[in-house]
Design a protein around this nucleic acid. Structure first.
Lengths: 319, 319
DNA sequence: TTGTAGGCGTTATCAA
DNA sequence: TTGATAACGCCTACAA
């Protein structure tokens, strides 16, 4: 491995001079700087990250933690985070799985962005307590080193419910996500509140944000001699797609006997026929804002929590 | 930050004893080992990765390089890689973008798995030349430090063409991917060879593996007063979906006037109606094998290049 | 069984 | 403007 020592030797200077030159310090002549740079290039020198990190105590890398890599959902979000971090000279690495959590206390990353319901809150708080900066996208945690960029779940749910009501719905089935999950809880709370306000009866059907759970829910709903139309607000598009799948096996039609609104505006929802009506938000922006927040908090600037707002997307699945 | 020094002090022993104890060396009493471990836990000690790496000269991290994070395509593959690496005690980080390439020469990662046509071959070879181990999934590079786990593109293409021929196709439109891309080139070569062998006329339509390029291709095909049925072999599912999108805007029907076979067996292709006939392979296995190869080559074991085989998946889009 | 000390490759503080 | 040198936190001969 070629290090600054080799360069120093070849250039006939000391290692500190090399270090200065390579780091663009004004303490060396432009001439020697150029000469040393040339030698460095010639030798294909690349600084050893471990050594540099050991000394500087920062890596300029942000870790993004996801529960899994499935679904086209994450694509745009990661893109947004990456673009955002680039603006500040940070690199992004994407991690998943328990062991990679250690990157945080090990100081392999300067900060973390978490969208992973699998990541225990206790653990996050512990890292924050040790002084690590963290931005969470899927929960609320109160700590000076933790900040959040959250979806406006309540606003989104209210949008969906308002549409259902405008569509003369007589009863609404709320196809919920995991009970302990923040997003699902918020959507549920806002939905029931809004429905109650308008005096519309509703029923909560448990789900877990996966397609199969949507499929099962649809099966169950149609098995019980239902009253049509059946109006469903699925707390994410994936479960809504599961409903489509089951309904497709019957003679019922989405948008007629079964009316449904999703949440997330995924690619698949936009492709199915009829198009899935859903709640949309900019995943790209979400990522950009998260990146901005983590950098700000690392740099010790004051950072305010922020929300990502939602809009309603029309689709043939509802009216 | 709490280091072994702090532990040593609190335990009243030297730092080396702590190091030995924490690393399970047989050079310390089980008793002191337990005592030191207890103190380490109490102090929430986590080893500093930079320092450890500097000394050990390895991180036990493999970098996976992707062109982007889009599409559900990568989900299973990454899952396979992660699972595979776990078996050998390695962690995975997912990277994208030019700057993260530096992780390789910087020794931030012990090895790299590359599926990123954006990553210049020259650069890969350069890193290999410096002694870094690399596994590529999307090209053939000849170097002792580079190994490949490739799709059996030719076999897959032949499968598709054989079906088309069995379906009495009179002419086949080959909807190709990027010209310089390895996968597309292989599929094209095998397709034309097979078609020529059977004396079936064909026409190559340029595309770039994106949905819009499939859409455009369909538009173009249908504009020229074509002869039905139009038989298409799209070199990936995404472009095939583009074809679906355009056809849907017309009165023609997929599976009737337009018959099409894709490649990749993506989730979306399985969902559309009629189901997209396509070439399938195990992305999970692909990842597992890639993981195995990179670890083997890091550990200096002999490693043989391997192929991932394909199968045909029936769908209403063809016959 | 435990302690001392040198070194991993850089950076940064002093002197020169 | 440069050079010698001490950290950074951990590992590991070698010595005790």
């Amino acid at each position: 491995m070629v290090g600054i020592k080799d360069i120093a030797q070849k250039a006939g200077v000391s290692i500190s001079t090399v270090s200065y030159a390579l780091n663009g310090s004004p303490k060396v002549t432009e001439e020697t700087r150029a000469r040393i740079q040339a030698i460095a290039n010639e030798l294909n020198y690349v600084p050893n990250m471990a050594a540099r990190t050991l000394k500087r105590r920062q890596t300029n890398i942000i870790g993004v933690y996801l529960a899994d890599y499935a679904g086209s959902f994450y694509g745009e979000l990661l893109d947004g985070i990456k673009k955002g971090l680039e603006l500040f000279g940070y690199e992004m690495i994407v991690c998943s799985g328990k062991k990679s959590h250690l990157f945080i206390p090990e100081r392999m990353v300067d900060g973390a962005i978490i969208l992973d319901w699998t990541f225990p809150a206790k653990e996050i708080e512990q890292y924050a307590q040790r002084g690590h900066q963290i931005v969470v996208l899927d929960r609320v945690l109160s700590h000076e080193n933790i900040h959040q960029v959250l979806l406006d779940n309540k606003g989104g749910a209210a949008l969906a419910i308002d549409r259902l009501i405008a569509g003369q719905s007589q009863k609404v089935f709320l196809l919920a996500g995991p009970e302990k999950g923040y997003d699902s809880r918020e959507r549920l709370e806002a939905s029931t509140k809004e429905l109650t306000r308008f005096g519309i009866p509703y029923e909560v059907i448990p789900g877990d944000f996966t397609e199969p759970s949507g499929y099962r829910a649809a099966k169950q709903l149609l098995a019980n001699d239902p009253q049509f139309p059946i109006d469903i607000f699925a707390f994410n598009d994936e479960m809504a797609i599961g409903v489509y799948k089951y309904v497709r096996e019957t003679d019922y039609r989405i948008g007629k006997e079964i009316r449904i609104i999703g949440f997330d505006n995924t690619e698949l929802g936009a492709f199915v026929q009829p198009r899935l009506a859903t709640i949309s938000y900019s995943k790209h922006r979400w990522g950009m804002v998260a990146a901005e927040k983590i950098v700000q908090s690392i740099q010790g600037e004051p950072v305010a929590d922020e929300h990502i707002y939602t809009t309603f997307v029309d689709g043939g699945s509802f009216i």
